[in-house]
């Protein structure tokens, strides 16, 4: 029994199990946000007309307005 005066039942598991879905979605939204920020940095306030991302070669092409 620790300082808390509680001896936890070690036979049960309280891990929250569904992290993957929402964490993956958060990562995806952050990725989109990063592309938007990159477009603003490269093209300025006018923004980009289109963005082509080549995931295989890690290259992104921004067509500015």
């Amino acid at each position: 029994m620790g300082n808390s005066g509680v001896l936890a039942d070690s036979s049960v598991d309280y891990d929250a199990k569904e992290a993957a879905i929402i964490v993956a979605a958060t990562a995806w939204v952050i990725a989109i946000g990063s592309v938007a920020i990159a477009a603003l940095m490269i093209c300025g306030w006018k923004g980009a007309k289109s963005v082509v991302i080549d995931w295989l070669h890690g290259k992104a092409t921004f067509m500015c307005r």
């Binding site: 929402i22 979605a25 958060t26 939204v29 952050i30 989109i32 946000g33 592309v35 938007a36 920020i37 477009a39 603003l40 093209c43 306030w45 006018k46 923004g47 980009a48 007309k49 963005v51 307005r65």
Partner: peptide, 27 residues
């Protein structure tokens, strides 16, 4: 999902400003 929702709204606004409304709609 509340934090993700706030983040998505922010990113969508950013995408619209950056001239990429399709990204905002997709998010």
């Amino acid at each position: 999902m509340s934090q993700l929702a706030v983040l998505t709204i922010f990113v969508s606004m950013l995408s619209i400003i950056a001239g990429m409304p399709s990204y905002a709609l997709l998010s």
